[in-house]
Design a protein around this nucleic acid. Structure first.
Length: 284
DNA sequence: CACCATGTTCCTTG
DNA sequence: CCAAGGAACATGGT
């Protein structure tokens, strides 16, 4: 569940149901998930604390925690990797096969499930140092984006995936943003002129805001025990409402007609990641 | 068996 | 020091 819109929707979902809850016990099933803290230390630090506010930075989740008294970390930091999920589960329901960390809250468990174990849940805030601006905040200006892009000859799509340029865009929304901006994913970052950078910034903000809006207006099943229709980030589901179908315009649509011009959507590889675009609408 | 998958970090090379 | 490219991490779907 990895890009900024999905994380934002998850944060909004979790905040009201987790805030104020006391962690009675902690079980770490994957030591690597909580590294560099050891599982025993991780549990010792969190046992007896309460969750406070939940927020987000880029694709990272930030859980404020209030210890009983002693000093210690004030926040638990989570990253979903490629397949991470977080949700409350009734205590009498069996844990999923790939539960990485489970917090016992009483009648419910707070579960971090992660099939591929690329995700993290620890106290390590160092990754924040390398993050660029939040795309939906005022700090994300045409100037900051232009300066970041001007230093590279790489394809602009590759730079959108660089979290130090702007935080939160992943492989799906990189293609979606460029389609909206009508910019070719292959365009060298430093060759984009000021007006195109401004257009790109606008497309980034609109694409992400729209995705958050979409995820916020749909009943979601974060536990993943329902079918794919409950997970808006999968983009397309057979019997989903129309806006599910229309949400992703080019991602995973190779061979399909472009919604704007009818030209066939292409798939290419950039920096060893699949990239989708309309060769007619995105010529430069 | 082959290839693909929402991400980040580390290592090498220039 | 930096930029760029690729492997590694790990599991499952097709």
């Amino acid at each position: 569940m990895p890009e900024l819109p999905e994380v934002e929707v998850l944060v909004r979902h979790l905040a009201p149901i987790v805030r104020g809850r006391k962690i009675l016990d902690v079980q770490v099933y994957r030591a690597k998930t909580v590294a560099p803290t050891s599982p025993s230390e991780f549990a010792r630090i969190l046992r007896g604390t309460r969750f406070e506010e939940v927020s987000r930075r880029g694709k990272y989740l930030v859980f404020g925690i209030r210890a009983a008294q002693r000093s210690g970390p004030s926040a638990l930091i989570g990253h979903l990797g490629m397949t991470g999920r977080m949700y409350l589960l009734d205590a009498d329901v069996a844990l999923p096969k790939h539960a990485a960390v489970v917090f016992y809250l009483g009648r419910e468990n707070f579960v971090f499930e992660d099939t591929r174990y690329f995700g993290r849940l620890n106290f390590d805030a160092r990754p924040f140092q390398r993050l660029g601006p939040e795309p939906l905040e005022v700090e994300f200006t045409v100037e900051s984006l232009g300066q970041a892009l001007a230093r590279s000859t790489q394809p602009v799509k590759v730079k959108l995936l660089d979290q130090s340029v702007v935080a939160g865009i992943g492989n799906i929304y990189a293609s979606e943003v460029l389609f909206r901006a009508r910019v070719s994913p292959c365009t060298s970052a430093c060759r984009l002129k000021a007006d195109r950078v401004a257009h790109l910034r606008k497309a980034i903000r609109e694409t992400l805001a729209e995705a958050i809006e979409c995820g916020s207006t749909v009943p979601l099943d974060f536990s993943g025990y329902g079918d794919r229709e409950g997970h808006f980030y999968f983009g397309r589901a057979p019997r989903a409402p129309d806006f599910y179908e229309k949400r992703l315009r080019v991602y995973d649509r190779a061979g399909e007609p472009c919604a704007r011009c009818g030209c066939t959507i292409r798939r290419i590889i950039l920096a060893s990641r699949s990239t989708y675009y309309c060769p007619h609408c995105q010529r430069t």
